[in-house]
Design a protein around this nucleic acid. Structure first.
Lengths: 130, 130
DNA sequence: TTTCTTGCAAAACATTTGCAAATCG
DNA sequence: CGATTTGCAAATGTTTTGCAAGAAA
């Protein structure tokens, strides 16, 4: 079921910002970066667009143990690790052990198509500092 | 550094509710269950207590890709899988592959003391239904 | 015209905070 | 007494929603 993707001016501008960010911007970050580029979209529009872009899978919504959602245009499979202390996020590009996933599927009976994992740890700076 | 744990009436009642729940109640769930037991604590108190109990590690705060925090009194290491569709949460009691964790530590330089993973999938009911 | 999208403001929701009163040691 | 905790209400911050106007098909 291939769907037609309707990229309005607003959606395209928002997608551009996310694709050109190498951190994981929140909605507020995105709005700020849009302003720098001369766009002043309504909050509602930005949130609507983010939901749309997530639905058509051009971006991924990350809930990284914070109160805000962050957005990521990297759609290849990868995971994230968040620092418990300062919140810094790193990408984990290491492939998940297939045997482990299989075991989870067998035990929980959940289907896992695109494994999406958020891991917690303590980043180098924070763990050396204390 | 062992700390003295100060369990006031309110904190104890809240801890009891969480320990006696086998789902993962949110703050609102907890307040509701407290009411059923005849307790009417202020919102602020419940949130303060939850933060305190988390700090002294009697409970764990779970951020399961939702807008609310959930709380879990099982402190043994275990992971969670959330259904993308209906939000149902299951525990994963399968041990994490040590080699994988080691690889992550090596690559990201994050210290991982108590791995805490949130996985996404589609539960049996939701995946058979569509 | 019919449908989808935007802009704006208000609403909703979870959580935090300030402060005075109560409790504990 | 001094420190901590509670209760309450107000504030905060993020996201959603209702609705009218605008754009696209």
């Amino acid at each position: 079921m291939t769907q037609k993707i309707n990229l309005t001016l607003q959606r395209k501008a928002i997608l551009d910002v996310i694709q050109q960010s190498d951190d994981h911007p929140s909605a507020a970050d995105i709005i700020e970066r849009l302003r720098l580029r001369g766009f002043n979209f309504a909050y509602g529009t930005v949130y609507n667009s983010l939901r749309y872009l997530t639905e058509v899978e051009l971006i991924r919504e990350l809930k990284l143990n914070e109160s805000v959602s962050r957005y990521d245009a990297r759609i290849e499979e990868h995971q994230h690790i968040v620092c418990k202390n300062c919140g810094k996020v790193e990408e984990i590009m290491i492939e998940l052990p297939k045997a482990w996933i299989d075991e989870i599927v067998k035990q929980t009976r959940y289907q896992i198509s695109d494994p999406h994992i958020v891991m917690e740890g303590m980043c180098e700076a924070c763990s050396s500092g204390k």
